[in-house]
Amino acid sequence: MNDKRRRRLDVSGLIIALGLLVIAILLRRDAGHMPPPPAYARIGPEAATNVVALGLVVLGLATAYTAWRGAGVEPERADWGPVALITLAFVAVIAIIGLGGGFILASAVLFALTSRAFNRRALLVDFGVGLALGLGAYLVFAKLLTLTLPSGPLEHLF
């Protein structure tokens, strides 16, 4: 840790510390809304919330302190493109299932976009593979083993 480059302010550490303190405040506020503890328990539903909030405050301050001293390790450069793409894929899945598009279609979209995020350039082929995978999984798990999976137009064909 004597490396000079690491001595500078650790910004991500400070953001994490801030995040912990924000969570602590949210917990504290929620505990404030709780009714007084029931007759005999002494401690009610607010007690654990307060304890966790206190712990988070302590941890947040400790994190801030170490970040201030610059003890943080610089993470390697990340590629944000693929992360955004997979996030987008999940949002698409949620939208498709929420709007009744069904499991198979959602699987295909998720499969194709994730594969694209891993640098593969065959979107249509992967979409086809995803459809086949989703269909296979649907037939085996929903039809044969009677699991409930969200159905849409494609599922109603079977």
């Binding site: 959602a106 998720l110 499969f111 594969s115 999984a137 999976l149």
Partner: peptide, 13 residues
Amino acid sequence: HWLYAGILVFATM
């Protein structure tokens, strides 16, 4: 690319 795509499909499922 297919392994992780498949993992995510089955995780969702």
